[in-house]
Structure formats: structure tokens, C-alpha cells
């Protein structure tokens, strides 16, 4: 899965999906994100790497306003998706989250059947007119989640009975089923074994066809394998951002180099 084709990347360079400018996040007195500017490209995988507590997950959760649910969290700055500032008072976070899907660190299927898990988003957003359309949506999402073949015979069995890797792919299928434009993934493989990790990574690469994917990961190999762009966070600062190949082979900042070679972290 070597995606280091530089030519392929260059032609999509201008196509910015998310543009963040001067983003600061405070948890009470703690300044978690310091003045971050970043442009996330459409139909590409962007990886956020960095040591624990560096703010990469916090920044990811700013992109679909999941931090709103934490009352102590305050955000300043501007994040534009398709030229619309998502922190504008006219934007409804609920609609935003339908457009910016999210997959979490720990697989979190609802205690419902596999079918109902995937149909959850389409149902609340009214994407299907009838039962048949819903069946199609569910099947398409499960196929995109690369899990259709494993579960097609037991769609009405509880999703919580699946293995961890299968559950995580169900969660990805569930996020994909609402047809988001951006897919945020917060360490999606940290609870999975190597085989399930490989399946999910393969899946992320395929999702790039339709979505812009932002993935937070602790594994630098994973970042190198799946992403086209990489951002390195350290202590709340965005230290370096650029082509994955450049970041990993020829980093500009000494901190990036130290982290990649395993000296800090």
C-alpha cells in the first residue's frame, strides 16, 4: 500500500476542504491548542501525529464541534468548511455533524442490531423514502466499510456481539451511511489487532475516493501508510505540516525529526 505517488498529490493541492485560521482551544485554564493554521485538502487522507496530550484529538474534535459537549471547553479562531465558518452562530452543530462524520478510538456500536446501527444516521436525517431504499443504503455503507461479506447473513444480530475489528468497521460504515463530506477518525485502530488494523487501513485508503479523511494516530507507520499529508503537533502547537513523504524523510523542524526518530514522545 505505497501511496507515495507525488504526481497524484500535486494535482489536488489547491482543492482545500477545511481551512483553519488562528484556532485556540482552552480547557478551563489549560491552553490546549495554540494558534493553529491548517488547510485540509479534499479527497485526501490527512494524518495528525504527535505525542500524547499534544492536542491532536482536541483539534480533530473542533472540526465537527464535538467539543461543544464539554462545558469547560472554549474555542477561538476560525474554521471554514467550504468557505462557511462552522463556529458562526448561524451554523447548527447538528447539521454540521451530519456533514462531518466521526469514528472514535474505541468501537462504540449502539446496543442495537447491525442493521439498525448503520441505518441510525440515515433514519434521523430522513435519507431513505422507504424500506427498500434503506436496505440499499445499509448495504452500500456496509460494503464501503468492507464488512458486508462478514455480516450479510446476520444483519439483525446485535452489533455488540461482533469482534472489536468488526465493530470498528461497523462504526465506519455507520459514519459513511449518512454520506458525510469529511470523515474524522480518532485513533481508529488503537483498540484493534494487526489484522483488523490492516483491514481498516485498507478501508481508509478506499474512503479517500469519496471523502476527505482526517485521522489521528499514534503509529507513525500508520500515518506513513495511509496518509497523503501529515501534521505534527507538539504541546498544542502545529509544528510542521506538509506532504507525508516530506515529513517522514526530510522534516524541516528538529522537533519533528526527533519525534519521528523516536527521541521525544
Amino acid at each position: 500500500m505505497n501511496d507515495m505517488r507525488l504526481g497524484d498529490r500535486a494535482k489536488q493541492m489547491d482543492d482545500t476542504k477545511i481551512r483553519a485560521r488562528g484556532v485556540n482551544v482552552f480547557y478551563g485554564d489549560n491552553h490546549a491548542i495554540k494558534d493553529v493554521d491548517v488547510d485540509i485538502a479534499d479527497r485526501m487522507v490527512t494524518a495528525f501525529i504527535g505525542p500524547s496530550g499534544c492536542g491532536k484529538s482536541t483539534f480533530l474534535r473542533c472540526l465537527n464541534r464535538m467539543n461543544d459537549t464539554i462545558s469547560a471547553c472554549k474555542i477561538t479562531g476560525e474554521i471554514k468548511i467550504d468557505d462557511q465558518n462552522i463556529y458562526d452562530s448561524r451554523v447548527d452543530p447538528v447539521q454540521l455533524r451530519a456533514k462531518v462524520g466521526m469514528v472514535f478510538q474505541k468501537p462504540n456500536p449502539f446496543p442495537k442490531s447491525i442493521y439498525d446501527n448503520v441505518a441510525y444516521g440515515p433514519r434521523i436525517h430522513g435519507l431513505a423514502k422507504n424500506r427498500k431504499e434503506m436496505d440499499e443504503i445499509v448495504e452500500r455503507a456496509l460494503r464501503r466499510g468492507a464488512i458486508w461479506n462478514e455480516v450479510k447473513d446476520r444483519l439483525h444480530a446485535p452489533a455488540t456481539g461482533l469482534s472489536g475489528g468488526q465493530q470498528q468497521r461497523i462504526c465506519i460504515a455507520r459514519a459513511v451511511a449518512t454520506e458525510p463530506e469529511v470523515l474524522l477518525m480518532d485513533e481508529p485502530c488503537s483498540a484493534l489487532d494487526p489484522i483488523a488494523t490492516a483491514q481498516v487501513e485498507e478501508l481508509i485508503d478506499e474512503l479517500r475516493q469519496n471523502f476527505s479523511v482526517v485521522i489521528v494516530t499514534h503509529s507513525m507507520q500508520q500515518a506513513a501508510r495511509v496518509s497523503q499529508r501529515t501534521a505534527f503537533f507538539h504541546l498544542g502547537d502545529l509544528v510542521e505540516y506538509g506532504e507525508t513523504g516530506t515529513i517522514f524523510t526530510n522534516p524541516e523542524d528538529s522537533r519533528t525529526e526527533s519525534y519521528i526518530s523516536g527521541r521525544i514522545g
Partner: peptide, 19 residues
Amino acid sequence: SMRDGSLGLGATQSETVKQ
């Protein structure tokens, strides 16, 4: 994580509670 999962899919708070 159940609440996060539901809210992350664009469900409102009352939909999350109900469903």
C-alpha cells in the same frame, strides 16, 4: 461513547436520548 457516537452522526440531543 454512546452519546458521542450518536451526536457524531448528527443526531440531536433528544434523538440521542430517545433512540
